[in-house]
Design a protein around this nucleic acid. Sequence first.
DNA 1: TTCCATAGTTCGGATAAATGGAACTATTGA
DNA 2: TCAATAGTTCCATTTATCCGAACTATGGAA
Lengths: 112, 112
Amino acid sequence: MRPLAHPAIEDVQLEGILHALSDPVRVAIFTNIAGADCAQTCSAFAEVNDKPIPKSSLSHHFKVLRDAGLIRSERQGIEMRNTSRCAEIEGRFPGLIPAIVNAHALQADRVA
Amino acid sequence: MRPLAHPAIEDVQLEGILHALSDPVRVAIFTNIAGADCAQTCSAFAEVNDKPIPKSSLSHHFKVLRDAGLIRSERQGIEMRNTSRCAEIEGRFPGLIPAIVNAHALQADRVA
DNA sequence: TTCCATAGTTCGGATAAATGGAACTATTGA
DNA sequence: TCAATAGTTCCATTTATCCGAACTATGGAA
């Protein structure tokens, strides 16, 4: 098992962020992690929007979020602790993440 | 040739916007159209960042931007007039487009 | 009118990326 | 040592992207 790679904040690309968050499952996972007050495990998202996500797909989604620089994943015993990198990204692309998180909330409201 | 379809603003999805702008060519085209003070033709982007874009690819990119609700395309004689739908999107997802346009500008500066 | 040039679209085949089941790895607790 | 849990990796299938070639639409010139 390869070690988890996290890009340096200066290597984070806008396109990568937008691509990572252009998937409904990933944007849901990310906004949840960003809004949580403690680290979240991967398996906490075994279901997203009442839809079960296979383990291998979940793992892939977390890798995309990680590679985009949106989250940091650290193994803690048997599980993975995922936290958002919002503060770092805010320094590089001010207002970007808040605008996306807000847009996601607005859209969720409308559907609900 | 099918008529050009434009989604109603209330049908515009965040995921669609992020997906459309997750491509370096498309985000360059969009920010250019959004920043221009008059409509732009498709062929104005035959080159993007000194890289030639094939016609069929360009046409595809414009369709993605159109389907995402980011631009409006109207035939004007022999050519197509493309304008951004920034104002409409601002009403639906406040701050989203400005944040992305700004992030794109910051990233372009860093590379330059 | 007919013909040609220009601007975009559509088709189709090749290439690349997403999906998810099955097998694997790593860690902990019994 | 063994079993259980949390994730990862592999790989085959499906899906999306890319781009050359053929096509459509409009307008201007002969």
